[in-house]
Design a binder for these strands. Structure first.
Length: 503
RNA sequence: GGGCCGCUAGCUCAAUUGGCAGAGCAACUGACUCUUAAUCAGUAGGUUACAGGUUCGAUUCCUGUGCGGCUCACCA
């Protein structure tokens, strides 16, 4: 049994009063002739034409404001398309019906109202109500104090702002904050735009297992679960990579997947334990082809959402015109801190060179890890404009092909926007013998670090031994892209139901 | 996981040095036939997150717990 607040008790009493009058506060059937927006537009089209038939409409929506004035009442209702004003007048429907609305309806209730569209003296297109009924009674008041419509824009005066309540009760946040609803419309459009682009390039969208007996394709701690009948532990995937590349072996030349990855790691403004990833794999392509496609894809998405290839993120204008800046990792570090990583082929040598940097680091880390730390600290935050950073150390890239000229470096790029790492791509390793050696090296690296056991995906190696076409692969965090497109500083703002501790 | 900060009415926020816990909106009662943050008059609304401590007296100071925020760490 919930403990009802005084405000809720008042509304429960209203429900009882309705039922006592034989009125069902939660009826089954609804009538609706127009959305609110359609009704307003239909009226505006015939307005001024004396011969036109009046627009008769039955509208539905949630009551968002009420202004009772004795024998007339104004109210605003909101549906999925727009707000519209209702006008109740005793002359038309009788004082009882006006008072019934004033007394038995509350902010947040759903109503169905019929009448004629007209424009008030103060200029607002309004439904002149001839009949109305309750569609759903709200027991709990919406956490919005009051809002008004100014020039068609809803202006809120003190609304739900506490982040904890907003995330825990996202339904209330959405109901009350139109800008939050807009974020998730943009999110949906973003995913659609990615699909449209890749479909247009001849890619096939596929779905691969989320529950996997062996996880791989990224460096991350997995979530573990258990299948009762199979009597087997399964992992929630940390990437799609190894399954998608099996599909290249199977004969699909271009595949992509958009879906959820799960990583049992820390949470931050740009990390969530479950997040949406897009990966694609492209046969007969290398990482430079993938760079070209990445630019074109992001330009398409930004243009679709923003209607131009520019967006503003946290006050910075970000330009998605092609081509983007391309920075070689080695040169980027030389320019930033004067260290040439090719002159330091061992971690010992690199550690020596890093002595004196203000950045803290683990001197026992591998050379690749140190380079990764350096770029995360000195390069990433400065890449506000879309930037490719390319040619990475081999030992942190076990699935990428080495450069022909340099065994310690692989054909890999990451790209950055707004100071955030957005994605990762490489010329994919397709040599099964080399791949097995890399896996074994990696296993040793884990042993030596006394870290957890890292399983080798033998089936993936078998697939590669059947022959895998040369290919370029790509992965990107979709949540982070949506952050850019909606100008949100934290990933939680673009997740409908961000994780919170149980209360 | 560490550090810092926060938690007061349904919502947004006040409360002087430790001295009767307040406002706006929402709610309730009444007035009002073109309002739109409607207006006007009145009423009610609190375990100050929770538990303990110091004190004549705690929203305020101290300790612990819970939840959240920021940040650092972790994160091929």
């Amino acid at each position: 049994m919930p403990e009802y607040s005084n405000l809720e008790k008042v509304r429960l009493e209203k429900i009882e009063a309705l039922q006592a009058q034989g009125i069902n506060p939660y009826p089954r059937r609804v009538e609706r002739t127009h959305t609110n927006l359609e009704a307003i537009q239909a009226f505006e089209e015939i307005e001024g034409d004396d011969n036109a038939e009046p627009i008769l409409a039955t509208l539905v929506g949630r009551v968002r404001s009420m202004r009772p004035m004795g024998k007339i009442t104004f109210a605003h209702i909101e549906d999925g398309t727009s707000r519209v004003q209702l006008f109740f007048r005793a002359n038309d429907i009788g004082i009882k019906q006006v008072k019934f609305f004033d007394n038995k309806f509350d902010l947040g209730d759903f109503i169905q109202a019929s009448g004629k569209m007209f424009r008030t003296r103060t200029g607002e297109v309004t439904l002149w109500v001839s009949s109305y009924r309750m569609l759903s009674k709200a027991v709990t008041p919406l956490p919005a104090a009051k809002d008004e419509v100014v020039d068609g824009e809803v202006v809120q005066h003190a609304t739900l702002a506490d982040p904890e309540t907003r995330y825990r009760q996202r339904y209330a946040d959405l109901a009350v904050n139109a800008d939050v609803r807009e974020v998730f419309r943009v999110r949906s459009k973003t995913i659609r735009a990615l699909q449209d682009f890749l479909d247009g390039q001849g890619f096939l969208e596929v779905e691969t297992p989320i529950l996997q007996p062996i996880y791989g394709g990224a460096a991350a701690q997995p979530f573990v679960t258990h299948h009762n009948q199979l009597e087997q532990d399964l992992y929630l995937r940390i990437s799609f990579e190894l399954y998608l590349k099996r599909l290249l072996v199977g004969g699909f030349e271009r595949v992509y997947e958009i879906g959820r990855d799960f990583r049992n790691e820390g949470v931050s403004f740009k990390h969530n334990p479950e997040f949406t990833q897009i990966e694609f794999y492209m046969a007969y392509a290398d990482y430079e082809d993938v760079m070209d496609l990445t630019e074109a894809m992001l330009a398409h998405v930004v243009e679709t959402i923003m209607c131009e290839r520019v967006l503003t993120y946290q006050g910075e204008k970000i330009n998605f015109e092609i081509p983007w800046k391309r920075v070689e990792l080695r040169q980027g570090l030389i320019d930033a801190i004067g260290i040439d990583i090719t002159e330091h082929p061992t971690s010992e040598s690199l550690v020596e060179a890093m002595d004196g940097l203000e950045m803290e680091f683990n001197p026992n880390a591998s050379r690749g890890k140190l380079i990764d730390d350096l770029l995360g600290h000195y390069l990433e935050p400065n890449f506000i404009q879309p930037t490719f950073l390319y040619d990475y150390p081999r030992d942190i890239s076990p699935l990428a092909k080495t450069k022909p000229s340099d065994e310690k470096t692989v054909e890999r790029f990451e790209f950055f926007i707004g100071g955030m790492e957005m994605g990762n791509a490489f010329t994919e390793l397709n040599d099964p013998i080399d791949q097995e050696e890399r896996f074994l090296e990696m296993g040793r690296a884990y042993d030596s670090a006394d870290d957890e056991y890292h399983p080798i995906d033998e089936d993936y190696l078998r697939a590669m031994r059947y022959g895998m076409p040369p290919n370029g692969g790509f992965g990107m965090g979709v949540d982070r892209l949506v952050m850019l497109l909606t100008d949100k500083r934290t990933i939680r703002e673009v997740l409908l139901f961000p994780p919170l501790r149980e209360r």
